[in-house]
């Protein structure tokens, strides 16, 4: 029966999208929805021109100050966007659709494989990280937002270098959770959380947010930390996509270890 057939297909697609990573069949990274989102965004952009300009001006000022005070940038190189320019390739792009109202949030950006965007590249802006590229088409790509309960990103506490995994509990768009932080770590409200060195997607020391609240899990001896994001995920515009040029090499090396 037609009804059962169609229902089965849709349930199959639902389950497919649930299993982790690279499984989605139907995404907004395609000619039709990408094109529609691009046009909608072009109209919306005019309304946000002012805030967008302010953000760019601020970043411009920060980059200028880095340029004029080269000594400072040597001491505090963590503030520099691409920490090691030789390892990371940076592509400039723009978000044309942003979702933050559901539990699995995706963004659509208007660069695709034509510009060199590939799955598993990191997405960030001047304030901090945004997500990881999931699917690409010729001109568009979808990005798993950090506000996605499937998202897992390696992060650390800047002061103490203790690592944890950045996840989202699906509740508040302003806060994400850093889990599996060892109890040995000294954590304080207000400390900065940045991306960790174990990540082969993001450069180290990219800003994420500050510690807002600390919970201790009695069963596992780990901290769970509420992190207040630097980024307002509900209002995003221009972004950078970073690619770790050594990613393949690292992955191949790690795969070798597993084989032995």
């Amino acid at each position: 029966m037609l009804f059962l057939l169609l229902l089965l297909i849709s349930v199959f697609l639902t389950i497919q999208s649930h299993s982790f990573h690279k499984s989605q069949v139907i995404t907004s990274a395609n000619f039709v929805s990408g094109g529609v989102y691009k046009r909608i965004n072009a109209a919306n952009e005019y309304l946000n021109l002012k805030t967008e300009n302010e953000g760019l001006a601020k970043e411009n000022a920060r980059l200028k100050s880095l340029l004029f005070n080269k000594k400072d940038s040597l001491i505090d190189d963590s503030k520099n966007l691409p920490a090691e320019l030789s390892t990371y390739k940076v592509i400039q792009s723009k978000i044309i659709n942003n979702s933050y109202g559901v539990h699995e949030n995706f963004l659509t950006i208007n660069s695709g494989s034509k510009e060199g965007v590939k799955p598993d590249m990191g997405v960030l802006n001047s304030k901090g990280i945004i997500g990881i590229v999931e699917h690409t088409s010729k001109n568009y790509a979808t990005v798993i937002s950090v506000l996605n309960i499937k998202s897992q990103i390696n992060a650390k506490i800047k002061k103490t270098n203790h690592f944890g995994t950045l996840t989202w509990n699906g509740k508040n768009t302003g806060y994400v959770q850093l889990i599996d932080v060892p109890r040995l770590a000294t954590v304080k409200k207000g400390d900065t959380i940045v991306t960790g060195a174990q990540s082969i997607i993001f450069p180290e020391n990219i800003n994420i947010g500050t510690i807002h609240k600390i919970y201790t899990d009695n069963k596992t001896n780990y901290f769970t930390i509420d992190v207040k994001l630097f980024n307002d995920m509900t209002s995003l515009g221009h972004i950078y996509i970073v690619e770790n040029k050594h990613r393949k090499e690292i992955l191949a090396l790690e795969a070798k270890n597993k084989d032995e």
Partner: peptide, 28 residues
């Protein structure tokens, strides 16, 4: 109607990256 509803839901799923949730509810 069933086919049109399936297509309607599938298009929504495409825009929302939501797998087949809209398609299933529309067909039902």
């Amino acid at each position: 109607l069933l086919l049109a509803s399936f297509l309607l839901g599938l298009t929504m799923d495409m825009f929302n990256n939501s797998g087949g949730v809209h398609a299933a509810s529309c067909v039902t």
